[in-house]
Each structure stands twice: as C-alpha cells, then as structure tokens.
Nucleic acid binder design. Structure first.
Length: 328
DNA sequence: CACACCAAACGCATTACCTCA
DNA sequence: TGTGAGGTAATGCGTTTGGTG
C-alpha cells in the first residue's frame, strides 16, 4: 500500500522520500516528506504488521533533517507504539516560560477591565501594547515600536491592516522553523526589533502560524483517514466474500474442519492455523494472530487494523486453500 | 505544605482587511 | 469595475502554567 500525499507547493524546496524496509518478520513501505520552507516534517508510515518506531524507516531521512527529527523526539516516542504515524511537526516546541518580569501592563488585566466595560477595546494602533519587559527593553521596544509604526500608525488608525513584507515573513518563518513557539520576551523582542515590528505583532504572527500548521495537519489527517476508511471498506468486502466461501466449503465438506490441529498448517494470510477455521467462520477479521508455538487463546483480543493487517497481502490466497491443503 | 491569587502565554474562534482571479 | 474566495493580521476570551505571598 502506498499513499501519495502532498502538502503545499511540492515544487519548492520540499523533498519526498519513499522508503521501504524489510526484515525477517515484516516489511514496511511509506513516505517521508519534508518541506524546508515551511519548517515542517511530515512522516508517515504504513506498517504491515509492524510499527513505525522502526529506526530503519527513519534512516532514509536526509541528514539535513536530522535536527528536525530530533526536535520531535517526544512526538515520535508517543507514536512508537502505534502502527500508524502521521506527523506534521513544526520542530521542537519550546516549553512555556514564565519570567519574573516587570509588568508594564497586563493583558488579562486589561481584558478584565474591558469585560467590565471600563476600558475600550484596544484599537489596532497597538497603543495599549501589553508586554513584560526589563526596563531597558521596555524603552527600547517602545522606541522600536514607535519607529516601526510611524508609517503604520496612520493606517492602523484608519483601520487598515498591516501586511508584513516578504522579508519580514521569511525571517519569521525561519525562526518558526527553529522554534514554533517564541522564547518569551527575549526572542519576541529581538524579532520585533530586527523586523521593525511591535512585539505583539510577532506574538500574533506565531500564534497564527501555529494555527495554520495545525489546520494543515488536520487536513492531512482527514485525507489519510479517508483512505484508510476506503481501504477498510474494501477489506471488509473481501472478507465477507471469503466468509461465504468458507461457509460453502464447510457445508459441502464438513469433514475437513474436524482434523486435529497438529496436522494443520499455518495460513500465511491470516497467521492462524487451520484449526481456527471454526472461529474464522464467525469472526474472520478480528481474531489476533496466533503464534506458531502458542495455543489458541480462549478470549481473542481485537487488534487495531494495521497491526492485524495480514502480511503478504498482495500474494494473498484464500484461507480455503490452506485449510484444504491441511487435509491432504 | 496547601491554597489562593496573579501574570504571562497559549489555543481557539472570530473578525476585518487585503489581494487576486 | 465589481465581486467573491482565500489568505492572514488582529482581537477577544477562556484555559493552563508557574511564581509568589
């Protein structure tokens, strides 16, 4: 199974890697894609009876992306145990930091006042810039802000919206690649200073950027789930057909279902010995694989789809083939 | 140590404006 | 030239988190 997904403009700076790894027990195919422009890493693997935690899969990433992957260690670890991983990661999140600031004017305080109707909503001029700064930073930021907004001021006052220049956006994007969250105050102030923006604008830009990332991720997830759903529907249809086959076989030749388990062979498609055929006829898709040395479990667990997905699917033969050959 | 309070930062929904087909 | 769609800066509000008394 191979999925093709695209995110953004694949013609620019984005890389797509298809990977296929094998070991003695399993085989994995998948796609890993990076988009350096967006600072996003999109990893996806569809395991055939395996998990994506497999390092081999990751090794096909370009070295350049190492940092990216390292940055998302947490996320990967979380996904290790799951058969399907679908990541769109804006690099390492910075833990929240609360400084010990000199408070200039608190946002929530103003919000409260606004709620109480004691303060007019902040106009877009940013006059009520709420930041927490060192004394020097405050002055510097204000100088910068006033400089920055000299020409913007009029447009803000007239209700016009500031459009960030390409250079400003690109620089913010660069920083977003490194950290999707602002290192409070320092980074925000530095960026604001360098870009001639108000700190609040930098903060808002990062918030909106995170929101866009999340939205894209959601879209990708939806697309992927849709495909999984289609695949499951198809699988379900196939299994129903098999079930009918087996029932027909069972009714026409009940003898073959009564053989001792020791004489039966393993069905490679579903990894159940033919002795389990009686169970198979009732719940073919939900029984867990039975190890070659284990006994048949009395209470089968339901295994999530990709874990239970039969191996060697493309070479699948009807279980009846194996069940019949077991009797010969 | 538990608790309440506060400030900062964040997420999310929404609005408002701009650009472009 | 008018218009609708899409993008995005900005706002408002609720929640979370960490510091402090």
């Amino acid at each position: 199974m191979e999925l093709g997904l695209s995110l953004g403009d694949s013609s620019k700076d984005s890389k797509e890697f298809k990977f296929s790894t094998k070991n003695s027990n399993s085989e994995h195919h998948g796609t890993a894609m990076t988009n350096k422009q967006d600072g996003l890493v999109f990893c996806m693997a569809l395991g055939l009876n395996s998990t994506f935690g497999n390092q081999e899969s990751l090794e096909n990433y370009n070295q350049d992306d190492d940092q990216t992957l390292q940055g998302s260690d947490d996320h990967q670890e979380k996904s290790m145990g799951t058969p399907v991983q679908l990541d769109l990661l804006p690099l390492a999140p910075v833990p929240r930091h609360t400084g010990s600031p000199l408070r200039v004017s608190g946002r929530s305080e103003n919000s409260s006042l606004r709620q109480l109707g004691l303060l007019q909503p902040v106009v877009a001029s940013g006059s009520a810039e709420e930041e927490v700064l060192s004394a020097n930073d405050v002055m510097e930021a204000e100088r910068t802000s006033s400089r920055a907004s000299d020409e913007d001021e009029n447009s803000h006052k007239s209700g016009k919206k500031l459009r960030l220049s390409k250079e400003q956006s690109a620089y913010l994007e660069e920083n977003f690649k490194e950290h999707s969250t602002l290192n409070p105050q320092k980074q925000k102030l530095a960026l604001a200073k360098q870009l001639n923006l108000r700190p609040r604008q930098v903060e808002v830009w990062f918030q909106n950027r995170r929101a866009r990332t999340k939205l894209k991720q959601t879209e990708v997830d939806c697309e992927y789930l849709k495909r999984i759903c289609d695949s499951l529907t198809e699988e379900n249809r196939r299994l129903h057909k098999e079930l009918q086959e087996l029932r027909a076989l069972n009714s026409s030749n009940p003898f073959c279902m009564q053989l001792p388990a020791t004489t039966l062979t393993m069905c490679p498609s579903c990894e159940r010995v033919a002795a389990a055929a009686t169970t198979l006829t009732t719940t073919p898709a939900t029984n867990p694989p039975i190890s070659k040395t284990s006994t048949i479990e009395s209470t089968p667990k339901v295994i999530p789809f990709p874990l239970f997905r039969p191996r060697f699917y493309p070479f699948f033969r009807s279980p009846s083939h194996y069940h019949q050959s077991a009797s010969s």
